[in-house]
């Protein structure tokens, strides 16, 4: 066994079948390493994904529908939602700007909703009237539960959804 690497010695020494065996083992080894790396990556990502969240309750009661005569706009910054009462019925609008998630503000004077971050404006239906917002403000679920208005901000509903209160 020479002490020094002899460069004149062929790196792949031995019979052709021996070569095949080496290639197979090399492939097997690198394949195993690859699988292990993939597994580590996936479990790592799953580790980073929280399984339990301690976030605010998204479902909350408002009160009886009679308390909100048509024309009322309720701003509920804590729940990030507007509740609009019209002659036809009730609907709840998310108050998070669809542009980059700033909290919009209800501008009573101009009867519009304005975003302070990038200047988007919405009308009370949630439609974009000005600025860079790509979508109208989404409507979230509002139902009548045992005579009480109940909003669930986690559930988005159709953009023309309306809760009719007889």
């Amino acid at each position: 066994m020479p002490l020094l690497d002899d460069l004149s010695m062929p790196a792949t020494e031995g019979a052709p079948d021996d070569l095949g065996r080496r290639r197979f083992l090399a492939l097997l080894g690198s394949g195993a390493l690859g699988v292990a790396a993939l597994g580590t990556g996936i479990t790592g990502l799953r580790f980073l994904e929280p399984q339990v969240l301690f976030e605010e309750e998204t479902r909350f009661g408002l009160g009886r529908p009679e308390e909100f005569p048509p024309g009322t706009v309720l701003t509920l910054p804590k729940h990030k939602v507007y509740v609009v009462s019209t002659k036809e019925g009730f609907f709840a609008l998310s108050s998070v700007c669809t542009h980059l998630g700033c909290m919009t503000r209800y501008d009573k004077e101009h009867a519009q909703i304005a975003c302070p971050c990038h200047g988007s404006r919405f009308n009370l239906e949630g439609k974009v009237t000005a600025g860079p917002a790509p979508h109208p403000l989404p409507r979230v679920e509002i139902v009548l539960d045992r005579g009480l208005l109940v909003v669930d901000t986690a559930h988005r509903v159709a953009p023309d959804a309306l809760l009719k209160v007889a």
Binding site: M103, P116, C117
Partner: peptide, 28 residues
């Protein structure tokens, strides 16, 4: 305070170019 956005809400200065660009085009 998650329920009150300051007006104007400005990012650190090195992001304000990007924020200004966000005024013209959608975020994508």
């Amino acid at each position: 305070n998650p329920s009150r956005t300051p007006n104007p809400a400005k990012a650190p200065w090195y992001f304000l170019g990007l924020q200004e660009l966000l005024h013209y085009y959608p975020p994508l």
